[in-house]
Amino acid sequence: MIISGKAVKFSDNVDTDVIIPSKYLVLLDPNELARHAMEGLDPGFYEKARRGVILAAGKNFGCGSSREQAPIALKYAGVKCVIAESFARIFYRNAINIGLPVIECENVSGRIADGDELMVDLENGFVKNLTKNATFQATKLPPFIMQILKDGGLIENLRRRLGVK
């Protein structure tokens, strides 16, 4: 899977309360959730993300609550992939389960600037910064996780495995 797009940059410890504030958790429509993505840090995010972006962040991205609405809001807002130095584990699992690719890469803060054109190769585990003409190693996803992403998320993956037509 190859994903490309412009980087939108955030710093360390971006928590799920700023990704999608809890007052919106009563919303069931993913497109409505998306309108409030990252509202806690950048109220203009939705407009920025709509054409499709790659979110680049520092350490511990997605820390805090288990709300799956966080990766859902990002995905439906237009985020095609999240690159971070590390992820909070529940966010990481949730993102994969709903089919939002996530990849760990060292020193994102030093290597990627806001607006850089990026290309991510998930299978082979690298990130290319086209603007800076540099390629970085990233953590390769294990095959069964790659499979969940390829299927489009855990629901589709399970439907296939359980043989649901």
Binding site: E68, L154, I155, L158
Partner: peptide, 26 residues
């Protein structure tokens, strides 16, 4: 449990951890 503080039950020698909603459905 689909709540991040599911880790609380370790107080009783259980392994417990938080997951997301879709995983809970799985």
């Amino acid at each position: 449990g689909a709540d991040s503080h599911t880790c609380t039950y370790g107080a009783f020698g259980a392994f417990s951890t938080g997951i997301g909603s879709t995983e809970a459905a799985a």
